[in-house]
Design a protein around this nucleic acid. Sequence first.
DNA 1: TGAATAGTGTCTATAAGACAATATCCC
DNA 2: GGGATATTGTCTTATAGACACTATTCA
Lengths: 263, 263
Amino acid sequence: MAVRRSGRAGQGPGVAQAQATGEAAFLEAYDPGRFERPSVAVDVALLSAAGGALHALVVRRDEHPARGRWALPGGFVGLEEPLEVAAGRVLASKAGLSGLFVEQLFTFGDPGRDPRTRVISVAYYALVDQARFGDAASRAEGLAVGRLVVPWEGETGGPVELRGPGERALPLAFDHAEILGMAVKRLRGKLDYAPIGFQLLPPSFTLLELQRVHETISGRPLNKDSFRRRMLASGWLEATGERQAEVDHRPAERYRFARRSAT
Amino acid sequence: MAVRRSGRAGQGPGVAQAQATGEAAFLEAYDPGRFERPSVAVDVALLSAAGGALHALVVRRDEHPARGRWALPGGFVGLEEPLEVAAGRVLASKAGLSGLFVEQLFTFGDPGRDPRTRVISVAYYALVDQARFGDAASRAEGLAVGRLVVPWEGETGGPVELRGPGERALPLAFDHAEILGMAVKRLRGKLDYAPIGFQLLPPSFTLLELQRVHETISGRPLNKDSFRRRMLASGWLEATGERQAEVDHRPAERYRFARRSAT
DNA sequence: TGAATAGTGTCTATAAGACAATATCCC
DNA sequence: GGGATATTGTCTTATAGACACTATTCA
């Protein structure tokens, strides 16, 4: 919709659940500009895959509220800044990463999600390969990498837990456990239809490495033969002609992602 | 993320694309409260199915900008109002409808989408059966029903057109053609995995009526035998024991939706 | 009886899972 | 050669599409 200073619908505090009867007329005359506006922020779930699990980058909160807890990289949206640009800026400033696959996830707007004031957060998720992810994590103080523990199967959805080194739990700030859960749900939903897995791998990879990534995302073992057939038939893969080196078995062919698409 | 008046990251006008180097320190000291905030609104794509096409309810704009164009029902989000409540309120006040299937779609935030000021719109879509949809459309002046013309196949995505009675085009305000397009894309994506089609039908319906709805959403004809098998095996359907009446052929059994789920 | 759609049964094509056999590397 | 994984090929099973046939209602 659009701003309607000059007359049309809007909403002020205190009439959230008003009845339909007679309300329309009231709303017609309502001027939203007279009321305080919520803050708008972006939060980015930066994910990678390693050791059979998804991992996320989190930032330690040194101030109240949620002091000592861990939060997703986030920041307020500039008044003239597109939402995706804000997400990219947050990734660049907090993790030093750019050029990643980034996609909008969901907008979280419960009035109580931040104890101080109303903050509406447009959540994004971003995918990066293991090497760049590790570099980002060691970039600055106050950053940590957590392993996602998903307490549900398939695309059920719900919050997830984060575990740091040594199984130590990383308590999450605000509703960030929900955001991470939604990122996992989205990844699982897109896995079979969109070239998602490639975003978690370096430019060239073997079919088994790709299968491990898919198993990590979906949370279940996959049939090797069927996976190979599906991937080769998908049109997403391109043989590089190179082969694995320095392995103590027959080296596998390396493939690369054939399309630039990010859908 | 969260408001960080007391110290942490944020973003002010004019540094949208700053480089990562040295930026972090600046952002740490940034106080977002000092700057103007964007407006936040909800827009709702209210959809129904009739005559083999999807239809949407739109509102005529009587004021600038986009005067004379048609907009989705929308309104500003109250400072203490949850986003879904705002979406429901808009549906109640503009269309007089409540209790519908409503789901968040996408958040549109391009700085130029409204010519007057920055408005970030959290878009929702809602589904309703043909009868209630018709009632809603005749509820007030300035409302119209348009037939969606989808110029792409499958889940390609992109804006759609709206045609009123007599093929007359209904020009859409702002980015509302994109919102409607995203609603269609989402519907198509969920059709096979979630009980979506039922939301467009009255409480009881025949298998052929359900098939027509699925064909309307997906935009392609479906195999009757396979559709019947899939639906009966899905666990979503429950036979009512009733049969069609007043048809000049063998009456079909009526079914109802077996689960309340809206996923 | 005829028109029209509902509903059932069967056959075929396609894709996934299971499994066997061979290939290629390092030790 | 032995160990390990890659790669190919075949067989089986589940599901979707195609099609034939019977059932039931109203005109």
